[in-house]
Amino acid sequence: MNASGPGHFNAANLVRAHEIVAQYPKPKSAILPLAHLAQDQDGWLSPDAMREIAQLVGETPAEVLGTCSFYTMFKRTPCGKYVVSVCTNVTCLILGGPEILEHLEERYADDGDVHVEEVECLAACDNAPSMQVNYEFHEHLNPEVAAAIVDDYKSGVLTARGVSGGRTR
């Protein structure tokens, strides 16, 4: 997290935010990239962040919320350090995706750092069953292997991207 508190871009990100807005012919287009930037900084998309985004793009906070609430990647409540997205779509379904989801949901039910979610096809069906941790792919899984991977993130053996996939440029 940053020194100036959630919902306020830190100095480097504020510079980046202005660059992002300038890339578009119309500032409103920057809502999605700015929301990713805020989420990577804060770990979620807070009302404060949306208010600042609104100012940056010259819209009302309600407009920003209206847009962002359409998109499942934006977490509008704090969701922990690791977003674990398990695919259960058709190829993963026949190869064991639902069992992985169930195992991880149970295992991390009380773990505030780990947010386990069911997602649609991740475009990794050739190596199904598949999941992502903070948008890093992990493939050829079974419940035990998947849990070991999540544990490796928690113990620092694996380095996680930001909660929005990291490195928003």
Binding site: P25, Y71, V119, L122, A123, Q132, Y135, F137, R167
Partner: peptide, 18 residues
């Protein structure tokens, strides 16, 4: 001016493209 609308979940793809 061209835009690439990239699926949000493709984090590695985003890095490689940029």
């Amino acid at each position: 001016l061209a835009f690439i609308y990239l699926r949000g979940e493709f984090a590695l793809g985003y890095e490689r493209l940029t």
